[in-house]
């Protein structure tokens, strides 16, 4: 830029500066309503600003929703974890409640008996093996001995066949090796209740001259020192005989549901007569 032209430029600039300062002073001295150009600019800018604002609002809204949804995922995960914890708690409380009910029933049943018992918790059940047994958490230290009967309020569970100091194994009624002296409640007929290996038992040695009906109750006989007389064993489901055999073929369904057992009583002490 040549010096003369540069001087001219700065002169124009100086004039402009003076002009705006004068303008500023004038506007301060004589405040006016917005002029037309200012109005046009404001009007145009307001339209543009509202458009930009709207666009920003849309973007912000979308982002907020995204963040909200993102937060929702985390919240959902957290709530699921809380829910799982609560469900576990509820389950534990329900278990405790049901256990309480069972133990109360067992206690009530125990108090009804005229013989001493030891309550034990079933710690393992083997109902599909070669021998159908239950393991309980009480043993010799608790007074449990081989041959004692295990019962619940529904009836007899089985007989103790093996003991350790703190555990015992019970052979349940339905095992083929289980034999218990029994009698039919209505007719007072004696027989041997033997397991079939399935879910039922068979009442043996009932001669066909006796009367056996369906739904007859089978009780312990109290013979052979196995336990008190009159404990419930099962109910007759079917009783048949054929001409070639002198005994009834009697199918007995035990009262106890062995798959649902959680606690049992083992008859440990002396008993007198019937239960």
């Amino acid at each position: 830029m040549r010096p003369v032209k540069r001087k001219k430029s700065f002169l124009v600039l100086a004039v402009l500066l003076v002009f705006v300062f004068v303008l500023l002073s004038y506007q301060l001295s004589f405040p006016q309503n917005p002029n037309l150009l200012r109005k046009v600019v404001l009007e145009t800018s307001s339209v543009m600003e509202s458009t930009v604002d709207h666009t920003i609002a849309v973007i912000k809204g979308t982002w907020s929703r995204y963040l909200f949804l993102h937060g929702l995922v985390d919240e959902n995960k957290r709530l699921q974890e809380v829910n799982a914890g609560l469900a576990r708690d509820v389950l534990a409380y329900e278990e405790a409640r049901l256990e309480n009910i069972r133990l109360r029933q067992l206690l009530a049943f125990k108090e009804q008996q005229k013989f001493s018992t030891v309550s034990a918790r079933v710690i393992r059940r083997d109902l599909s093996g070669i021998m159908k047994t239950l393991m309980i958490d009480c043993g010799e230290n608790d007074g449990i001995r081989k041959g004692q009967l295990a019962i619940v309020d529904a009836g007899v569970v089985g007989r103790v066949i093996e003991t350790t100091w703190n555990a015992a194994r019970i052979l349940i009624l339905t095992d083929e090796n289980s034999n218990i002296d029994a009698l039919i409640q209505t007719t007072r007929t004696y027989g041997i209740l033997q397991g079939t290996g399935k879910d039922t038992c068979s009442l043996k040695h009932i001669v066909k001259t006796e009367t056996v009906n369906q739904d007859d109750i089978i009780l312990t006989s109290g013979l052979a020192g196995e336990g008190p007389k009159g404990l419930a064993l099962g109910v007759v489901r079917r009783a048949e005989y054929d001409k070639t055999n002198m005994f009834f073929d009697i199918e007995v369904v035990p009262f106890v549901d062995f798959r649902k057992l959680e606690e049992v009583l083992v008859i440990t002490g002396k008993w007198q007569g019937t239960s």
């Binding site: 600039l13 402009l16 500066l17 705006v20 300062f21 303008l23 500023l24 506007q27 002029n35 200012r38």
Partner: peptide
């Protein structure tokens, strides 16, 4: 109106 005109100039 002239405030920023002045400053910017």
């Amino acid at each position: 109106t002239a405030l920023f005109m002045c400053v910017y100039l």
